[in-house]
Each structure stands twice: as C-alpha cells, then as structure tokens.
Design a binder for these strands. Sequence first.
DNA 1: TTGTAAATGTTATATTATAACATTATTAAA
DNA 2: TTTAATAATGTTATAATATAACATTTACAA
Lengths: 133, 133
Amino acid sequence: MKQKNELLSKNQQLVFELIEKANEPLKAYSILSSVQKKGIKAPLQVYRALNKLMEIGKIHKIESKNAFVACKNNDCKISKASAFYICENCEDISEVNNFKLTKYLSSFKANNEMKVSKYNLEFFGICKNCQIK
Amino acid sequence: MKQKNELLSKNQQLVFELIEKANEPLKAYSILSSVQKKGIKAPLQVYRALNKLMEIGKIHKIESKNAFVACKNNDCKISKASAFYICENCEDISEVNNFKLTKYLSSFKANNEMKVSKYNLEFFGICKNCQIK
DNA sequence: TTGTAAATGTTATATTATAACATTATTAAA
DNA sequence: TTTAATAATGTTATAATATAACATTTACAA
Ligand SMILES: [Zn+2]
Ligand SMILES: [Zn+2]
Ligand SMILES: [Zn+2]
Ligand SMILES: [Zn+2]
C-alpha cells in the first residue's frame, strides 16, 4: 500500500518536505525562494500546493502568523481540528495534542448555535523554555 | 465618569463606530474607504486605530478572514480571550459568549506546556439559520 | 481511447500590512 | 507654567500576502 507522501504530486511534495523538515512555521514566499532551485517559479504554485496540503490535513496554517507547519498529530483527521501553542517570546510554535481538548471542542455547542464541523485554536503565552530563563 | 468610548482618539472613534454599527466583519481597506469622507486618508491611519482598538479589547480580528468585529462580550477582559462561530455558508460571524468555555480555555494547560495568557478560537460550521433552509 | 478531474505553468494584479520620518496633541511632573 | 515624555496623527513609499485568468499537461478511470 502506498504511503500518504507518495500520493502527493511533485509540487505538493516539494513544498511538504520543506515544511516538514523545518523546525519553525514557514511563510509562503520563504517557501517559494527555497523551492525555486527545484523548478517552482511562481507564488501561485506554492499557494496551490499549500492549499491542497491543508485540505488533506498534512499541514496547518497558523492564521495569526500567515505561516505553515506540518501536522504533528496524525494529520488531524483531515484538518478538522487544530490547536497550537505560540510563544510570544521566542515565537516557537507547537501543535497541541490533547484528546480531551479535541473532544471538548469538537463537540462544543453553546446556546443553540451552530454545530461545529471544524475549528482552529491558537494559544499565546510564554513557553516552558522561555520561562526558565 | 467618562464612558469608555470617549477615551478613544478621533481616528480610533471613527473606526470603532463603523465597526460597531456593521453587522458583519469589516476589512481594513473597506473601513478606509468608508472613513475617507471623514478625513482619514491612508491605510496606516486605519491600521493604527485597529491595533489600538484590539489592544484595549474593543474589537477583535477574525484571523481567518483578515476582518474586524466589535467585541460583543464586555471587551473580553482586554482581549485576552476570544472565540467565534463562523458560518461557512453565509459567512455570518458571531462571538461566542460562554463562561465555561472561557474558563476551560483560559486555564488550559496540557503536558507541562506553556501557561496560556491569551487565546483565539475560530469555530467553523453551518449556522442555525442556514441549517433550516 | 477518450473523457474528465487534477495538477501545472505563467503573467499580471489584487489585497493586506508595515517602514520611515515629520508633526502635533495630550499628560503629568518639575 | 514650562518642560519632557508619551500617544496620536499625517504622509509617502513599499513590503508582504494572496488570487484572477487563461493556457497546457498529466493522471487515470469509464
Ligand atoms: Zn494537526
Ligand atoms: Zn519561548
Ligand atoms: Zn470579545
Ligand atoms: Zn449561515
């Protein structure tokens, strides 16, 4: 059986590999400049790959930073539920992997409002590492 | 005693009034074109007002839309905790006002990670109104 | 093999946001 | 009430992020 990675097209794979190897969120135009040696020439090629990768849950967009990270959480059930810690000091970003939180938010319904089909949550604070210093 | 509104500067007040009266999130450049009759001429003047208004919790940014709404939730304790419902069908956006959720997220701490000082949550789904149709 | 969906390539342009610098208003001490 | 600090404003230019539009190619199943 094929691995998920192999299902990616050429551009999608180039972009995904870069994001996956990075240890920080990457911006679209920074991705572009990195993959230009490998044939991708225009912003749109990057954005199309990014959109597809988000759709299938392999990456997430950190909305408050306009940056992209690889999913560390088993592709987040096709990207329906994502949550992040964002350190306001060192800018380190890590994906929250907490079953209780996922369950709580996925089933959240207040005041007869909408049924949630997807959510994105961004926590801000000072990370463990920065607290020590 | 002065009302909170009166503490706003001229540009801040112009921008805030517009956002408060709107029944949908407003984009920065749409705000700009609306306030141009009233003397604001440049994007930066709008962005500065927006930043200040966010800082004091009178408005929030819907990160996934790059749009701004007035806080419907008693200024969200100086904008430290915000959550929204976003209808994927009609684009209607409403602020969640749910004490339990606020408490749960404000005190959320998993796996010895960071202490949360602020968060933003965006729920996506189909709103009550669109479900009926 | 032929039709369809997905992906790509390319140019141009739209949208969102900040840099840099000069000036003016508002406050709160001295 | 001068003075010094802080906040707000005005202005021009430019950076950064993202999509429109259209032509072409690839993948792949009916
Ligand atoms: Zn994930
Ligand atoms: Zn940190
Ligand atoms: Zn609020
Ligand atoms: Zn709706």
